[in-house]
Nucleic acid binder design. Structure first.
Length: 444
RNA sequence: GCAGCAGUAGCUCAGUUGGUUAGAGCACUAGUUUGUGGAACUAGGGGUCGGUGGUUCGAAUCCACCCUGCUGUACCA
């Protein structure tokens, strides 16, 4: 090694990226297997699109900027900008536009995939995360929207949630559209600010939202956010409209009727859900968890939704002249995993190998024979993967939470009977090789 | 991005009004019967006190700038 101080490579992870460990991954696998089962039952087809897309295909144009990296990760490849996908909907629209003539209409597909966002991460929010999406493309029928809600509900219950522990909130972009007509609001940026303000009711309450609809709001840290500058009369009208308990737009009335036909009642009308501002055109919905979620310090945090979706009738049209109204749902799987792992009764089985201890390298063939015997019987097992004293081998077995170790040293070999030690109870006994599999099965 | 707070061992933190070789618990390593884990005991390794510059006889401690993190806020297709 050179004497000069070399700057060492960093062990830290990039902001917003995390290592995920087995326990979490097993919960995720469990959820994914439930999703796949339900998707097959509902007749969706499985699709995978690449992580990268051309930036302009997924809605990032910005020709005047050096890098199109507002919110997305991008790089230049042979003079063309590529971006890591930030959701699965934009790639779907691209896929449908590209393969429009070949695919069935309507087109139903589901997809699981990692997406990336170049934004500031928050509690439970990362810059890389796994999404699950299911969409209907090419139908205006609200039966599709209804079915998505019924379906996600079935997935959640398969994952062990009870009816009271989650709820589907529904609303429609038509409500705000009509509201804007009513108060004669035409300025696009004012509309956008209004929507953004209304989206914050759950967090700021009506008082905070009214400040944002008016001149603006100063937050706890003293930072000031400019408001939409609506008149106080218009703010009143909006508040009245938003406090109505029953939907009045035709799409929601129709949707609820279909819910009835499905016998589906675990939804609530909530005009304050806004969702993505740019592309939704009609019915929107959000999946909320109703139980407390804690952070790693044990504090209850405002967890918010684990996903949502709605109708986006114009997204595919952006690529050409195909008329493909669509509706879809996306679920943030990592958030769902995080929430499920907090439920006490929720456990997934982690299978750990029986450890065969090594006394003498010359007896390796005997250890391999035992290992083969166990593995043939479907028992997870390993020969201690190192060279160490028995004490170290025991410590290793304990550390990996192995259920049992097999001791096959000189004494046992003479008798032809390995010693089986149960690591939960600490008890051990000699066992005939023929009986080994059965005895281990009693332990695990 | 804006704002507030913070940064001392792998982790959680202590470090008195600036004063010698910077500490604890947990974790780690090695031992306490060279064939036995989870407990206990003994010993040990590990820190340019986030970085750079400044003030001072002397800085983890004071000042400036930078970096990083947390929280709020904004954006979030």
């Amino acid at each position: 090694m050179t004497k000069e101080k070399k700057s060492k490579p960093s062990k830290e992870l990039p902001l917003g990226f995390v290592d995920r460990q087995e326990k979490e991954l097993l919960v995720r696998d469990f959820i994914i297997s439930n999703i796949k089962e339900v998707m097959i039952k509902y007749g969706f087809q499985y699709l995978e699109t690449p992580s990268f897309e051309y930036s302009d295909s997924i809605g990032k144009f910005l020709p005047d900027k050096d890098r199109p990296d507002e919110g997305v990760f991008s790089f230049k490849d042979e003079n063309k900008w590529l971006s890591l996908r930030y959701d699965l909907t934009a790639p779907l629209a691209r896929y449908v536009a590209k393969n429009f003539l070949e695919i069935p209409k309507p087109f139903k597909r589901y997809q699981l995939g990692t997406v990336w966002r170049n934004e500031k991460p928050g509690p439970g929010r990362f810059r890389e995360f796994l999404q699950f999406d299911a969409d209907f493309v090419g139908t205006k029928n609200l039966q599709a929207d209804a079915e998505l809600c019924v379906m996600i509900s079935e997935i959640l219950e398969k994952c062990g949630l009870r009816r009271l522990e989650y709820s589907i909130k529904i609303s429609s972009r038509k409500i705000t559209e009509e509201l804007f007509k009513k108060i004669n609001l035409n300025d696009d940026s004012q509309k956008l600010t209004t929507l953004r303000a209304l989206d914050k009711i759950d967090r700021l309450g009506w008082n905070g939202v009214k400040e944002l609809l008016g001149e603006g709001r100063r937050d706890k840290s003293g930072d000031f956010t400019k408001g939409a500058n609506l008149t106080s009369r218009n703010i009143e009208i909006i508040e009245d409209e938003f406090k109505k308990k029953k939907p009045e737009t035709q799409d929601l009335i129709d949707l609820i009727k279909i819910f009835k036909d499905y016998n589906f009642s675990n939804f609530e009308f909530d005009p304050t859900i806004i969702r993505g501002l740019e592309y939704y055109t009609g019915v929107i919905f959000e999946v909320d968890l109703k139980f407390d979620v804690k952070n790693n310090k044990g504090q209850v945090i405002q967890f918010g939704s684990i996903g949502g979706g709605g109708r986006y009738d114009n997204l595919v049209n952006n690529f050409g002249n195909y008329d493909a109204p669509a509706t879809g749902i996306s679920i943030g799987l990592d958030r769902l995993v995080f929430a499920l792992m907090q439920k006490k009764e929720f456990k997934v089985k982690q299978t750990k190998p029986v450890v065969i201890c090594v006394f003498d390298k010359n007896s390796m063939k005997k250890y391999i024979n035992l290992q083969t015997l166990l593995r043939k019987a479907g028992i997870s097992s390993e020969i201690y993967p190192g060279e160490n004293k028995l004490k170290k081998q025991m410590e290793y077995a304990n550390k990996i939470k192995s259920p049992a170790v097999i001791l096959f040293g000189d004494d046992e070999i003479k008798l032809g009977k390995p010693t089986l030690r149960n690591l939960f109870s600490g008890k051990e006994k000699p066992v005939e090789i023929k009986e080994l599999v059965n005895e281990i099965k009693k332990i695990i």
